[in-house]
């Protein structure tokens, strides 16, 4: 079963079992993990699902699309090289476990 470790800006850790096909954003919002808003439900309209992906996991993800790249330029906390919009990261058995850190603010 895919698993996501969410680390808050303050260092609090939540580990959530996810479902293959769900995104890192959906998994957080449905389970009440703070730090990810996901207001648009995952259609690249809001940029309130910004996360920093663990360096070790970064290369295992699908590449950033043009639209996601543009949205990342406008996140409330400035982007870093390991920034992603978590609605674009889909969980799968192959991907297995992931670790992300949430920014101080999304809105």
């Amino acid at each position: 079963m895919p698993k996501v470790t969410y680390v808050s800006d303050a260092g609090e850790v939540r580990v959530v079992d996810g479902l293959a096909g769900d995104s890192v954003m959906q998994t957080a919002v449905r389970n009440g993990v703070p730090g990810i808003t996901g207001e648009c439900g995952g259609v690249l309209s809001c940029a309130t699902c910004h996360v920093f992906v663990d360096e070790a996991d970064l290369d295992r993800l699908e590449p950033v699309s043009g639209l996601e790249d543009e949205m990342l330029d406008g996140t409330v906390v400035d982007r870093c090289p390991n920034s992603r919009l978590s609605c674009q990261i889909k969980l799968s058995e192959e991907l297995g476990e992931l670790r992300v850190t949430t920014p101080e603010a999304q809105e």
Binding site: A47, L67, E70, D73, G74
Partner: peptide, 12 residues
């Protein structure tokens, strides 16, 4: 339209 970075800039 298809300008999400501009949208975010104006919103902020």
């Amino acid at each position: 339209v298809n300008r999400p970075a501009d949208f975010l800039a104006v919103r902020s």
